[in-house]
Design a protein around this nucleic acid. Structure first.
Length: 267
DNA sequence: AGTCAGGCTATTA
DNA sequence: TAATAGCCTGAC
């Protein structure tokens, strides 16, 4: 058990925000979260958190994963939003101020967001869980959670199996798994690249277009300036920002702003 | 029965 | 370069 106070963090909001598909709400205020090959149950009451693990594990894994050490950035952004003239953004921030950009596993993000295209959250989560159960290792028996399959842990027949629900994305998945196996340095190289370089490398892969590439940059590489534009964001821009949006003001943190706007639009 | 869900590829003009 | 058909599938 480890107790800690954190501002600007809300487990439920992140679970619903669509950047991760493997968190499980197992109670009103309790969530089982998954990172790399670790799981932990967290209970939240206001800004107080109880982690079902030792402090050692908190320091080693969860603190970084939850992006805790960038508190100043989130506070700065909050001030920027609240002192600005964008009333819609102020409302969006008020509604989702507990959202943070997690530091998730790059490979998991690449595969998950290829699955996410032209798809809905329920189906995405289902496909991801089936993939993990079929090819991953059991990492939490109590909560029935499996690790996310590494490039060398799958075989082609997994992607031919219609019951996995990948649909036409099967072909993309088969190819990206093969590519990662054949180019074992690709993931590490991506991490060393600038935002523009990473975008270019990602867009060369089949099944990764502009939107998915931007999601990978934001959620998998922590390029916080990436700004994925999906159907919801597109609609919201037409609705509230027909006269333009002040990207300049939020330069370097646009991706977090995108999350606030997106999450508010979902409500 | 159509339409839509956190799009992409391939094909047109 | 811009616009559009077609795509797996399940929910409404």
């Amino acid at each position: 058990m480890y107790k800690v106070k954190i501002d600007n963090l809300n487990i439920k909001q992140i679970a619903e925000s669509g950047q991760c598909f493997r968190w499980k709400m197992i109670g009103k205020d309790t969530c089982c979260i998954v990172a790399y090959d670790n799981t932990v149950c967290v209970t939240q009451r206001d800004n107080e958190f109880i982690f079902d693990c030792e402090k050692e594990q908190w320091d080693r894994i969860w603190r970084d994963y939850l992006d805790i050490d960038t508190d100043t950035d989130y506070l700065q952004l909050a001030t920027l939003i609240n002192t600005g003239k964008d009333e819609h953004l102020k409302k969006a921030y008020k509604h989702g101020s507990g959202i943070r950009i997690l530091r998730q596993d790059l490979w998991e993000i690449i595969v998950t967001f290829i699955i996410s295209q032209n798809n809905n959250i329920k189906r995405i989560a289902n496909s991801v869980e089936m993939l993990c159960k079929r090819c991953g290792k059991l990492i939490d028996a109590e909560n029935d959670i499996y690790s996310f399959p590494k490039p060398y842990e799958t075989t082609d027949d997994v992607f031919d199996d219609k019951t996995m629900g990948f649909g036409y994305r099967s072909e993309y998945l088969r190819e990206i798994y093969a590519y990662a196996r054949n180019n074992p340095n690709w993931l590490d190289n991506l991490k060393k690249m600038s935002y523009d370089e990473a975008m270019e490398s990602l867009l060369e892969r089949k099944g990764i277009g502009n939107k998915v590439a931007n999601c990978i940059c934001l959620f998998g590489l922590h390029h916080v300036d990436a700004f994925p534009i999906d159907t919801h964001v597109k609609q919201l821009f037409e609705k509230y920002y027909a006269d333009g949006f002040d990207f300049e003001r939020y330069i370097g943190m646009a991706g977090i702003v995108q999350q606030y706007l997106f999450y508010y639009e979902l409500q």
